[in-house]
Amino acid sequence: MARGKQYQAASGKIDSEKSYNLEEAIALAKEAAFAKFDETIDIAVKLGVNPKHADQMVRGSVSLPHGTGRDVKVLVFCKGDKQKDAQDAGADFVGDDELIARVQDGWTDFDKVVATPDMMAQVGKLGKVLGPRGLMPNPKVGTVTQDVAKVVKELKAGMIEFRVDKVGIIHSVVGKKSFEDGKLKDNITALLDTLVKLKPASAKGQYVRGIYISATMGPRVKLDHSKIVNEL
């Protein structure tokens, strides 16, 4: 794949054969970010699991200590008093039947979806709209709940959901280039700590097999994953 001069120049700052400690990797990823906007810092974690096996499907959520740097639009499907709870907590869109019909028609101007358990029979009908975007509420990641206020606040503050893809990799946002290095370190450590705790009992051999971080437009930086995991 052909790369532009800026990308090539940024890549020249990174030794692709070297595994960096977390502090070095964060500094390099930020230094190699060349776009004029405040680039997102992303992480990719290769896990030693087979997602084809249900008992090795790694998914969950974690509240990043310093948030993601994004303005997250939260939609909540609920009824009665729960609607006021969601609105008071900062939800951007709250409703039941009418809101479900709107989404069913193709409207998706939101980033996260929360639902109370009593709404899931109807929300399940939105699978074709929400599923491909990774937006379907799920009790395993805390987005199907009676305590909608708590979850809305967490999502607004920086709670992220993650799910291993078909080749065993977790992709996630961990902040912005403008974040202080220490805040990015805290966010990355929080995510990695959660992933390690979610290791499936059936996963054999080395669990965390690779970690890379990069800015939106920049080259990836390889981390010394064994050392980092051992220090968690």
Rank of each mutant, 00 (worst) to 15 (best):
M1T: 06
M1D: 07
R3V: 06
K5Y: 12
Q8M: 07
Q8P: 02
A10W: 00
S11V: 00
G12D: 05
L22H: 01
E24A: 01
A25W: 00
L28N: 00
A29N: 01
F34C: 01
A35K: 10
T40V: 10
T40N: 07
I41F: 00
I41C: 01
D42E: 15
I43K: 01
K46A: 02
L47G: 04
P51D: 06
H53T: 11
D55M: 09
M57V: 15
M57F: 14
V58R: 04
R59W: 11
R59P: 03
G67L: 08
T68M: 10
R70C: 04
K73Q: 13
V74E: 06
V76P: 02
F77E: 06
G90W: 11
V94M: 03
G95Q: 04
D97T: 15
D97S: 14
D97M: 11
D97K: 15
D105P: 02
G106P: 10
W107M: 14
W107P: 06
F110I: 11
K112N: 09
P117A: 11
A121I: 10
G124N: 10
G124M: 08
G124K: 05
K125E: 13
L126K: 04
G127S: 14
L130Y: 11
L130K: 05
L130C: 09
R133E: 14
L135G: 05
L135T: 09
P137C: 05
K140R: 15
G142W: 12
Q146H: 14
D147K: 14
V148L: 05
A149V: 05
A149C: 09
A149W: 02
E154S: 14
K156P: 08
A157Q: 13
G158I: 12
G158P: 07
I160Q: 10
I160G: 09
K166S: 15
V167Q: 14
V167H: 10
G168H: 03
I170K: 02
V173Y: 05
V173F: 05
V174N: 03
K176I: 06
K176Q: 13
F179H: 06
G182A: 12
N187K: 03
T189F: 02
L192H: 01
T194I: 10
L195R: 03
K197N: 12
A201H: 08
A201F: 07
K204H: 07
Q206F: 02
Q206W: 03
M217H: 08
G218C: 01
E231H: 09
L232Y: 06
